[in-house]
Design a protein around this nucleic acid. Structure first.
Lengths: 230, 230
DNA sequence: AGAAGGGTTTACACTTTGTTTACATTTATG
DNA sequence: CATAAATGTAAACAAAGTGTAAACCCTTCT
């Protein structure tokens, strides 16, 4: 499922967009301004941002600029009012990928979202390769040892996160925030259980291992491969 | 060899596209505007059109419209500048199949060309083969296991869609949008019921399987066959 | 060694999601 | 017009995924 972050201060619009996106198989994540958006981006895997320009606290330009400055190439679809439009260079100079002028036609929005996602997917195939093993984010599958396994969502996202940043230690809290969402009231121990399930499932896989870092959390390590001797 | 018609008034771009396409095994046919393009289409067998929107004499919208009015469903990949987008209805309503926003990334272009051709082939051949099984779009029939079965529309289209893109996961919503239409108010669960009917009907068929991806949707997988090769 | 503080494992309960069935409604067909 | 076929709806049912808790097992530190 693709997560789309909608950054819009007008509640009505926000809800409208969310409804439309949800209806078309995306998951909409909502923020009222750029600050909130950045916080969310920090902890959730977002595939595309739809952002208004005029907003309190942090506007769309600033938001996009922050993203680009941080080296992200997340696609951004900007929403402008006609009035804002005068300084249209501004928007694109900071790295917007596309824009729409209010009033928004939701079908147009869907088309643009589709086109941007297609492009983004082309540029960044969402796969992680680790030795002979490949994780396919879109299919929730792991190709390992000659067969493709379909994982449950939580397990997959957890594994994907860990394997995407090999050797990086994640605290349980970080993992919870990212995969369960900030406002989940699930117990931290649950992470352990899922790690256990993943370990069980891939105990035969020679390419990676999930290592416990006592007192801190977990990390994935790539295992050096046996073209060499044992 | 597939012929691709490039309609672009900027000579530099035209040559760039031609070079890239040629290098990847297509034959590029060039036109400077819509009028020229139509003339060429009249006398050459073209598989796909890549057209700029803004051009002298006849623009991309008009070209596409002429094509569609003449009953052609040739795939058209439109190239737009961001500014063209103002009169948004225009582009998509006349039947563009996909679009790219300038500046064009040629790799992206190739991928989109590939995708469109693939889709077009499915559309024009109007049948999909999967192992020993053949789906015939025009007759709504499935040749499987030595006999031809006529399916009800919904069941057929659903199956056809899934089998046309093996391994690709479709959300219920995507399938609804495609087969029932965007503004259908039919319940998503209905998809399940049809999937169930299809499964029941083809439980003996060894060539494909419809797999549930919990929390996401459905996908078709081709079953590796004993003995047979590719 | 023994206690304390993690971490792991297991079993189970609960929730969410998908499947199946029966039936009502609509649409095609003779 | 009658009948059958196709489709949609609803409800009962089944299963997978997920979370909780408790028991167990290490490591570390005094």
């Amino acid at each position: 499922m693709l997560n789309i972050l909608v950054v819009e201060d007008d509640e009505k619009l926000r809800k409208l967009f969310a409804a439309v996106l949800t209806r078309h198989g995306y998951r909409a994540v909502l923020a009222e301004n750029g600050e909130e958006a950045l916080a969310i981006l920090d902890r959730e895997f977002i595939s595309l941002v739809i952002s208004d320009i005029m907003m309190p606290k942090m506007d769309g330009y600033q938001l996009t600029k922050s993203l680009r400055d941080a080296g992200s190439d997340l696609p951004v679809l900007m929403i402008t009012a006609k009035e804002d439009f005068e300084d249209k260079q501004k928007g694109f100079l900071v790295g917007t990928d596309d824009y729409m002028v209010k009033p928004i036609d939701v079908n147009e929005m869907l088309l643009r979202v589709g086109a941007l996602l297609r492009r983004a997917r082309i540029v960044t195939e969402r796969k992680v390769v680790c030795g002979e093993t490949t994780l396919n984010y879109d299919a929730l599958t792991v190709w390992c040892d000659g067969e493709e396994v379909l994982l449950p969502q939580k397990e997959f996202y957890l594994l994907y996160k860990l394997v995407s940043y090999p050797n990086k230690i994640f605290t349980r809290q970080q993992l919870m925030d990212e995969i369960w969402g900030m406002d989940s009231d699930t117990d931290e121990r649950t992470v352990d259980v899922h790690v256990n399930r993943i370990r069980e499932r891939f105990k035969g896989c020679p390419d990676f291992k999930i290592v416990t870092v006592r007192g801190l959390g977990y990390k994935a390590v790539r295992c050096p491969q046996g073209g060499e001797g044992e």
